[in-house]
Amino acid sequence: MNDNKTLMKNGLWNNNPALVQILGLCPLLAVSTSVINGLGLGIATMLVLVGSNITVSLVRDYVPNEIRIPVFVMIIAALVTCVQLLMNAYAYGLYLSLGIFIPLIVTNCIIIGRAEAFASKNKILPSVQDGFWMGMGMTSVLVVLGGMRELLGSGTLFGGANILLGQWASSLKIVVFHPDNSFLLALLPPGAFIGLGFLIALKSVIDKKMQQRQPKVEKPKIERVRVTNQ
């Protein structure tokens, strides 16, 4: 489990926190109205994941088992506060766009789950790798779902990139088509549920196709010997 390649596969695909574990649905459905919103929250979540995994791995031998969960929550809350202050200082537009969902990272089950299930049982390096790849898995789903909703709802991609990357990024906006009226369902939480359902179904189809392509290993035949009484 400590192999980086295995951790990468688990975080991005086999055990993706959004598509397989179905965790963090509240920010996933509420924030993913655009690529930039999804990317911004994904980066914030990944930073907290990596930081909490490092800290928990460092203190795991010094925290009594009875109070480990409250200690982990305090660590995560402190890191979320730091990320919130940094975002407020350097990406104020994104800070306003994400709103309450930045401090709600504290309650994200992905972070406390990885701290409890992995970081509290492993050394620093694998804990960093686990936090990074789990964060990347969450970020990738946020970006893909945000792209789908933005495209269907507004006909654009990377709209509002300047609130994350600066004023120069305004030119990154891509107008795919000009809708007469916005497709409101795609921009509302029910549209996010439907989009996430399609992504989970797509992953399931791809997994089945990959299993079918794998060569089947034939079980060795066991010859039965008939014993007769003489």
Rank of each mutant, 00 (worst) to 15 (best):
V80C: 10
C82K: 00
C82N: 07
C82L: 15
V83A: 01
Q84C: 13
L86H: 11
M87N: 12
N88L: 15
N88I: 09
A89M: 14
Y90P: 06
Y90L: 15
A91S: 15
A91L: 13
A91H: 14
Y92N: 13
G93D: 11
L94V: 05
L94Q: 13
L94D: 12
L96C: 14
S97A: 15
L98F: 00
G99I: 13
F101G: 03
F101S: 10
I102Y: 06
I102L: 07
I102N: 09
P103Q: 13
P103N: 12
I105T: 05
I105A: 12
V106C: 14
V106H: 10
V106S: 11
V106M: 09
T107W: 10
T107E: 05
N108Q: 04
N108V: 07
C109Y: 13
C109W: 12
C109R: 12
I111Q: 09
I112K: 07
R114A: 10
R114T: 00
R114I: 00
A115L: 04
E116T: 07
A117Y: 07
A117I: 01
F118I: 01
F118D: 04
K121F: 13
K123Y: 12
P126I: 11
P126L: 10
P126D: 14
S127F: 03
S127T: 02
V128D: 07
Q129Y: 14
D130K: 09
G131Y: 08
G131P: 04
W133E: 11
G135H: 02
G135R: 03
M136Q: 01
G137R: 03
T139F: 06
S140V: 07
L142F: 15
V143F: 06
V143G: 05
V144K: 02
V144I: 15
L145S: 04
M148S: 12
R149W: 04
E150Q: 12
G155W: 06
G155R: 04
G155E: 05
T156F: 01
F158G: 02
G159D: 02
A161H: 09
N162C: 00
I163V: 12
I163A: 06
L164Q: 00
L164D: 02
L165A: 05
L165G: 04
L165Y: 11
W168S: 03
W168C: 00
A169R: 05
S171W: 11
V175G: 02
F177A: 01
H178K: 03
P179D: 09
P179K: 03
S182M: 11
S182P: 00
L184A: 13
L185W: 12
L185M: 10
L185V: 12
P189T: 01
G191A: 04
I194G: 05
I194F: 11
G195V: 09
L196W: 06
L196V: 01
F198S: 04
F198C: 07
L199S: 06
L199Y: 07
I200F: 10
I200M: 13
A201F: 15
A201V: 14
S204W: 15
S204H: 15
V205Y: 01
V205S: 11
K208Q: 14
K209Q: 15
K209W: 15
